[in-house]
Design a protein around this nucleic acid. Structure first.
Lengths: 229, 229
DNA sequence: CGAAGTGTTGAAGCAAATCAATTTTCGTGG
DNA sequence: CCACGAAAATTGATTTGCTTCAACACTTCG
């Protein structure tokens, strides 16, 4: 949150003082299912999760990747029912915050601003994904995703030297990128053969960030991680 | 906003009492350009506008259609610079609200909730578009768009008997749906030939809503227009 | 050690892109 | 009111990026 707004020590104290009943969840478990009535807000502390939708024909689209520090379902404070599902991709640790807690946080102007910022950044990422899905080809989309995840992992201190943990199998990779597993595999090989990335053992290493960014026209501004004011 | 939250007469009075300097803007004009520093929030009163991004290679993706009652750039109150552009598709009437006005509205809990609701619905629509772009074919995407616009136009009283104004040319239609103009044209003809829609003179008429919805697996829940609590 | 999940490869088919031409519609001025 | 030019819509022929289907190899783990 501090990437988006300036918090005071008092604000930090409020956040750190929240009652925290953290919970472990196994991999591949739904945290929220589309259509569920909205109950608590979840905050991801450890692990990797995703938002997704399943169409009547069974086709699955992953809509967002959630990394530590992300809210899983801030929407639930306002909307009546979930319009998409959320599931863990790896074992995760999450905190559940009752709606009353969220509304009490809104009393603190800078924290309220931070929550709003977080929701707007989610939206900005969604716009970037939509742009890619409409206008970028398979290789560019994959390259863009790997650049984005590097930036986001760096922002929360989970990337070292252009390397980060990315425990996503190729089925899921296809569901993220809107393509088949087979084609995700082939796109990955293109990037590997070009010497741009190495991806094995659930870890991504970006070997040539400049060329990778150039390949997909990456510009990190949409992540709004620099605070200019 | 009243589709999402219950406002009191006092809330309505606050909103109606805002200083309103409305402004006319011609068609095909940028209201906000990507990279602009964020200044005021715009509210669309009349006409049709869109959010869009342009990639380095010139490819354009339209990210959202804005109809009367929509905010053009609520983000600007929090984010430092615009990560996408907004332009009018037809002549429009807009109101500019200074950030100070927005922040003063946040003092009113139900209005604050309404602004938040509005932003979350934008996000929900974005998720639905992303799902379609990844998983639906051209004909289904077009059908889904026409269903969505019918529901949204009805919600603001701008649709009569399954007919609404939709002054979008086929170049723009392609930019919305992430396909070429030629293919947008052919997809439209499929729907016309199936007797599902009529689309001419900048107006859409849904001839068989049930079959059209069935074709694309449409489910309006994501628009969150029913208030259940 | 075997079974299930995951990753990789090949061949064939198809939806959508591309390229290019033609027709229709529409706004504008004579 | 018609003539004209530009914009928009439509059509056809060809190419291509991605899907589909199927087989096979590798890894992981109970």
């Amino acid at each position: 949150m501090e990437h988006g707004v300036d918090l005071t020590d008092a604000d930090r104290a409020v956040l750190l003082g929240l009652p925290r009943r953290s919970r472990r969840v196994a991999a591949k478990q739904d945290l929220i299912r589309e259509g569920d009535p909205c109950e608590a807000v979840h905050l991801l502390l450890e692990g990797l999760a995703c938002r997704y939708k399943v169409l009547p024909n069974g086709a699955t689209q992953i809509l967002a990747l959630l990394i530590p520090g992300d809210f899983c379902h801030l929407h639930s404070a306002i909307l009546d029912q979930a319009d998409h599902s959320v599931r863990t991709l790896t074992p995760c640790v999450i905190v559940e915050l009752p709606h009353a807690t969220i509304f009490s946080l809104l009393e603190h102007p800078r924290i309220a601003r931070g929550l709003w910022w977080s929701s707007l950044v989610d939206e900005a990422i969604l716009r970037e994904w939509l742009t890619g899905m409409g206008q970028r080809d398979a290789e560019e989309r994959l390259a863009h995703l790997l650049c984005e995840m590097l930036a986001r992992m760096q922002a929360v201190g989970l990337a070292v030297a252009n390397t980060y943990s990315f425990p996503v199998n190729q089925i899921e990779l296809g569901e993220i990128l809107g393509m088949t597993t087979v084609h995700a595999n082939r796109s990955l090989q293109q990037l590997r053969n070009a010497g741009l990335v190495s991806y094995g053992n659930k870890r991504v290493e970006i070997l040539d960030l400049n060329r990778l960014q150039e390949l997909c026209g990456y510009d990190a501004k949409y992540l709004h991680l620099q605070r200019d004011r």
